[in-house]
Design a protein around this nucleic acid. Structure first.
Length: 431
DNA sequence: CGTGCCGGGTC
DNA sequence: GACCCGGCACG
């Protein structure tokens, strides 16, 4: 499925956001113990200084015309490029080593717009902030999770799929291809100062692409940049739409799951993303009526139309059957008048046989008809029924003996017995 | 379809 | 009650 031509990109992206590759990690361990205030990495000249940036080390770069603090994610010493995570912008950037410095307000080269950045000593950086950055970094290894608002570790196997060997070995700048849509053919175009917004977009566009590349299915949790995302509660008869995951989860948990919520992930089953202003048909945009759900949630009572129709109508059908036909017939038949071909119960057989034929002119009660219909086959057991008139009410089995009609013929009807003439049971040739 | 005959109607 | 007949079941 994955075009091989794109594997490289995928790989590079993995390398970019992935944790340090083992080899470099070892170097980093050897070199700079994180946080040492080196007055500018960029003593620099790439390849010469051999200054090693430790993953997690606080550095500063120029981004969008201002100095931004960031955390080193990876230092590719082959070409001296550093992958940096900028918590402020919540994005990852790539810088040449000479464009990175470790003290605030110590730009490597004169920058036109030098905005005062609160000076912070790298040592002053909270460790938890570093840890947070690292966590984000590791989380970001999952291509499905790069959206700032969607850090869901569940989908992110913590960077394990980065495949360090495969990715980091390339080492070339080409593998860092942060394709910022600025049509920069350069393999590793550093983000220019004017690129910031573009970079942000590129992030998401990249996410989308990664989603498409890495996963055949569109990542449902991804936010499309051009889409307005909302979250619709799929609970039966609810359909509440909230704009945040937290909100919808809280809504589901509090209003629907209540105390029954055993797992805090359970809410995921009960909401779906809906997109508006769609450019591209998004599968998740359809769910309003038929929500994707389909999750094997054990207690999910499937708040979809499917569920409402499937089990509900199923049982309804059954119930309708149950009083129409007692036989457990596994036939899904709508509750319509039973066709004449359906003869699963004796009662219906009677009714149908009578309805299927033109009604008799003579007045025959249903019970009489029933007796008539059944007396013949059950004639051997005449005692089973209590005939209203006599013991022999039921129709007699046609006698084998020839009757007056047969004997004399219709022409000699006057020779018939009275009964035969009256169309009664022959009295002359009694069986 | 022919036959036997039940059940009902009519006189 | 005698007679007739519609109609169903059966072969």
């Amino acid at each position: 499925m994955l075009p091989k031509s794109r594997l490289g990109k995928r790989s590079t992206m993995g390398a970019l956001v992935c944790g340090p590759c083992p080899s470099e990690e070892s170097h980093a361990d050897l070199d700079a113990e994180g946080g040492v205030s080196t007055p500018g990495v960029r003593s620099g000249h790439h390849g010469t200084g051999r200054v090693k940036l430790h993953p997690g080390q606080k550095v500063f770069v120029h981004c969008a015309g201002q100095e931004c603090g960031g955390v080193v994610e990876q230092h590719n010493h082959v070409d001296n490029q550093v992958s940096i995570f900028l918590p402020q912008l919540n994005q990852h950037i790539l810088r040449k080593l000479e464009d990175v410095w470790m003290s605030p307000s110590n730009p490597p080269h004169s920058v036109s717009c030098s905005i005062d950045v609160p000076k912070r000593n790298p040592e002053a950086v909270d460790m938890d902030e570093m840890m947070a950055a690292m966590v984000l970094t590791s989380l970001s290894c999952s291509p499905a999770v790069q959206s700032p608002s969607q850090a869901e570790p569940a989908a992110a196997p913590s960077g394990m799929e980065c495949g360090g060997g495969e990715l980091s070995d390339s080492g070339s700048s080409g593998c860092w291809s942060w394709d910022h849509g600025n049509a920069s053919p350069a393999p590793s175009p550093p983000i220019t100062e004017t690129d910031r917004s573009l970079a942000a977009h590129a992030d998401e566009g990249l996410d989308m692409e990664l989603d498409q590349v890495l996963f055949d299915e569109p990542a449902p949790r991804k936010r499309k940049n051009s889409l307005k995302v909302a979250y619709r509660c799929l609970w039966r008869n609810c359909g509440k739409v909230l704009t945040t995951v937290v909100g919808i989860k809280r809504h589901i948990r509090t209003l629907h799951l209540g105390q029954n919520s055993e797992s805090d992930k359970e809410e995921d089953f009960y909401y779906t993303e809906v997109y508006r202003d769609v450019d591209q048909p998004t599968p998740a945009a359809s769910p309003p009526s038929p929500p994707r759900h389909a999750a094997p949630s054990p207690k999910s009572d499937q708040p979809s139309t499917l569920s409402q129709s499937a089990p509900g109508s199923f049982w309804q059908v059954h119930s309708e059957h149950s009083y129409q036909a007692h036989a457990p017939v596994e036939v899904v038949v709508p509750a319509v008048p039973v066709p004449s071909t359906c003869r699963w119960t004796p009662t219906f057989t009677i009714a149908q046989s009578k309805q299927g034929e033109p009604f008799r002119s003579r007045s025959t009660s249903v019970g009489e008809q029933w007796l008539q219909s059944h007396s013949a086959p059950t004639r051997t057991l005449p005692g089973n029924v209590s005939p209203p008139r006599s013991h022999f009410t039921s129709r007699k089995i046609r006698g084998e003996a020839k009757k007056c009609r047969k004997v004399y013929g219709i022409e000699h009807r006057d020779q018939w017995c009275t009964a035969c003439r009256w169309k009664k049971a022959c009295q002359r040739f009694v069986d």
